[in-house]
């Protein structure tokens, strides 16, 4: 799942997969601006058929936080 999430983020932001490290956050690279962040979240929702709750959306600003929330949602 971790690899899949990273692949989606890389594809949406149009960067190499190696760029998408666990510690990468919104704002660290120009492609991951506010519009890029929305694109990442909405694409992950669509492709993994999940729905991030409203209250966690603002915290989904790093690779690790997105992976953690995806795993949590899928396990729930």
């Amino acid at each position: 799942m971790e690899k899949l999430v990273k692949e989606i983020i890389a594809r949406v932001l149009n960067v190499d997969l190696e760029v998408i490290t666990d510690t990468l956050s919104s704002g660290d690279i120009p492609q991951w601006d506010s519009v890029g962040n929305l694109a990442v979240i909405s694409t992950i929702e669509q492709e993994l058929n999940i729905e991030f709750p409203l209250e966690v959306l603002f915290d989904l600003t790093s690779v690790q936080s997105i992976i953690d929330e995806v795993i949590k949602l899928i396990h729930d």
């Binding site: 919104s26 704002g27 601006d33 506010s34 519009v35 962040n37 929305l38 409203l54 959306l57 603002f58």
Partner: peptide, 12 residues
Amino acid sequence: VNGMDVFGFAIK
């Protein structure tokens, strides 16, 4: 428009 600030506001 500071997108991340507006995003945080708009979802809250």
